[in-house]
Design a protein around this nucleic acid. Sequence first.
DNA 1: GTGAAAGCGCTAACAC
DNA 2: GTGTTAGCGCTTTCAC
Lengths: 346, 346
Amino acid sequence: MPPNPTSTRRDRATIEDVAAAAGVSVATVSRALRGLPNVAEPTRERIERIAAELNYRADPAASRLAAGRSRSVAVAVPLLDGWYFAHVVAGAEAVFAEAGYDTIIVGIGAQGEGRHVLEIAGPIYRRVDGLICVDVSLTDDELGRLQNERMEVVYVGHDSDAIPCMGIDDVEVGRLATQHLIDLGHRRIALINGQPDDVLGFVVPHKRQQGYESAHHGAGLTPDPSSQMPGYFTIEGGYQALSRLLDLPDPPTAVLSFSDEMAFGALWAARDRGVQVPHDLSIIGVDDHDLSVLLDLTTVHQDVAEQGALAARTMIELLAGREVPSGRQNTEVRLIERGTTAAPRR
Amino acid sequence: MPPNPTSTRRDRATIEDVAAAAGVSVATVSRALRGLPNVAEPTRERIERIAAELNYRADPAASRLAAGRSRSVAVAVPLLDGWYFAHVVAGAEAVFAEAGYDTIIVGIGAQGEGRHVLEIAGPIYRRVDGLICVDVSLTDDELGRLQNERMEVVYVGHDSDAIPCMGIDDVEVGRLATQHLIDLGHRRIALINGQPDDVLGFVVPHKRQQGYESAHHGAGLTPDPSSQMPGYFTIEGGYQALSRLLDLPDPPTAVLSFSDEMAFGALWAARDRGVQVPHDLSIIGVDDHDLSVLLDLTTVHQDVAEQGALAARTMIELLAGREVPSGRQNTEVRLIERGTTAAPRR
DNA sequence: GTGAAAGCGCTAACAC
DNA sequence: GTGTTAGCGCTTTCAC
């Protein structure tokens, strides 16, 4: 075979090239470049210099294969284009990038009709060191299988006592928002919820609903189940939900929407119907979406990017083998009073 | 060394397990499972059945190392939480997932101050087969280096004649929006642009501005450079930009914002100032953001998710070794007239 | 149509 | 503190 130095394989320096140039073995190069002990300082410096000159970087596939770690994590979300999910992912990605981890995104598809984690097992299998599930639930079996493959799992939104979970106090969110409406004098408070009835143990709306109910009970009121509509966490869903609520024989004077995006849809429906907000109807959301201030929407603020960042930091700790308390870690929420809520007209 | 069969390595079937169970060699298993020729149909079926039973999937790191392809792509975006970027990524991810590719997201950081592609080389180096740059530019040198490593590159938004680019006709966008305002009778039409002066050859605002200018010229008008403000493609930036425009000695009667999010900021500023839209001021955006209908914003519609999907399909073709025409592939745009534009008051 | 064997580029024992 | 070496699990010639 003729020597063919200018062919395809001109590309990249390997660890052997660095070792040869530095006059050491590949093992030493590997140690030096990963900051492991047992490398003399002058040796390390020389190797680092040469590696830089040669523009060498370890092939991730090769190190994954040899070491069993890929320095990448997956973030699973129902849909990528929702405001909430985009912000969680953004928060997580920034932290992971900083720490040298790659972020693989996996869209599960909303409404449970989509791919389930059984299927995302494909992208995830042996490809990532950890998985962050954002409002995506794993069955015990799935969780067990992942952990059996030495994968770390962190939840955002969902709850579990087996693994670390980031989120907010959703019961408090429901309570806070409902109490605000009750304090204003409302008695018929409708709900724009998530799914009609909960598909995959999506616990967030359940908990918010608990808060909604407890606020009612605390005021000696009984919530009316017939004024609780699914809004699917979309603008369109919120529109539909409020439309139906307004068709009720005894329509509500106020509505709590479990997301700002659904509240936007509700605002839209109200406008289409000629219903004056807040005079005829008060609307309160949850999230404090970037546009809520513009639409003057009263809402419960949460820091979504921070939850993503927290999840990422927790994951990094876990992957570093450090102990992390499983269970919930909540970020603060607070009521933001704006113009879409007021006392009922009578 | 004592045999230790029950230790850590209990996890997963390897290709050898499948080969043994099927009574064939690993080579045949590999061929069969990847749909390559030269496998007898009964053999293939048997192998597929056994692989399924054993829940076998090829280790991606091992195949990457052996084959040089990782079946994953990177999508680089300035920021992940903008509406536009979230939708491009969502569109691309769905297509990639369908085709069995993993999607790695890489946030570059807005405004050029962030990490540049030189640095994203880290996550990207030998880790992905291709890179989609969304409003992120590569220098010729960077592009050359990537291609030298046999990576395919596709642009969304940006322009290049060396590689395939997805987008819209940005000149037409600027022209269409400006013409709409001119047709309504406006003569002092301000602009809310992207960066103050263009950092990294971000060509999209430039082209929209060309359209803005050509519409002016076509009507015998001369655009006023002093009424062109940077809005940084953020809500906040749009707010600031309109605030400054309203402070001008001779404020505009209409403003074209190069994104709906900036237009939302402008709407907000107008409201804060007590400026009535559209009576005192017309505002038109670009995007047709999900919330534009709610804010009754006149805008130029584009299908963002489709651009991401197109980019992904193009990338898949490229990676399959099929020919793809380099150069631009535009999706349709159209004017959506809503309530924020009207004839000037006098 | 199928198998044997040589790597892909790295990490991790272990020996020195 | 450094080198040797045996894999990691797959793909891919090349024989048969």
